[in-house]
Amino acid sequence: MPIVPSRFRASGLFKDPHFSTIYSAKIRRVKGITQTRERIELPDGDYIDIDWTLAATPQEGNIKKVAVLLHGLEGDAQRPYILGTAKLLSNNGYDVAAINFRGCSGSQNRLYRSYHSGDTGDIRFVVNTLVTRAYSHINLYGVSLGGNAVLKYLGEQDHIPSQVTCAACIGVPADLKASLEQLIKGENIVYRTSFLVHLKAKYRKKMQQFPDKMNKEDYKKINSLKRFDDLYTAPAHGFEDALDYYARASSFDYLDKITVPTLILNAKNDSFLHGDCYPIAQAKNSNIIHLEMPDHGGHVGFYMKGEFYYNELRTLEFFQKNME
Results as ranks from 00 to 15, higher is better:
S286I: 10
N285C: 07
S286H: 08
E307F: 01
A283R: 02
P294H: 06
Y303G: 10
M304H: 04
I288D: 06
F302I: 09
F308V: 09
I289C: 06
D295M: 08
Y303M: 10
N287D: 15
H290I: 07
V300K: 08
H296C: 12
K305F: 12
I288A: 10
D295Q: 14
E292H: 01
S286M: 10
K284V: 05
E292A: 04
D295V: 08
G301M: 08
V300H: 04
G301R: 04
E292R: 02
E307G: 12
E307C: 06
Y309A: 14
H290C: 11
P294W: 03
Y310P: 10
E312P: 09
E292F: 00
L291W: 04
M304P: 01
Y303Q: 12
V300C: 11
K305W: 12
L291V: 06
F302E: 05
E307N: 12
V300P: 01
Y309S: 13
Y303T: 11
N311V: 10
H296T: 11
N311G: 03
E312Q: 13
N287A: 13
F302G: 07
H296P: 00
G297D: 01
N287M: 03
S286E: 07
F302M: 14
H299I: 05
K305V: 05
Y303W: 14
H299A: 04
E307H: 07
Y310F: 13
Y303D: 09
E292V: 01
F302Q: 10
H296Q: 13
L291H: 03
P294A: 11
M304K: 14
N285V: 01
G301E: 05
V300N: 06
L291N: 04
F308S: 12
M304F: 00
Y309N: 12
N287W: 02
L291Y: 08
H299Q: 03
G306H: 10
F302D: 07
E312I: 05
H299P: 03
I288P: 07
H296F: 14
Y309T: 11
K284Y: 11
Y303K: 14
F302P: 09
F308D: 11
Y303F: 14
K305H: 14
P294G: 10
I288Q: 05
H290Y: 15
A283K: 02
S286V: 11
G306D: 10
G306I: 07
A283S: 13
N311H: 14
G298C: 02
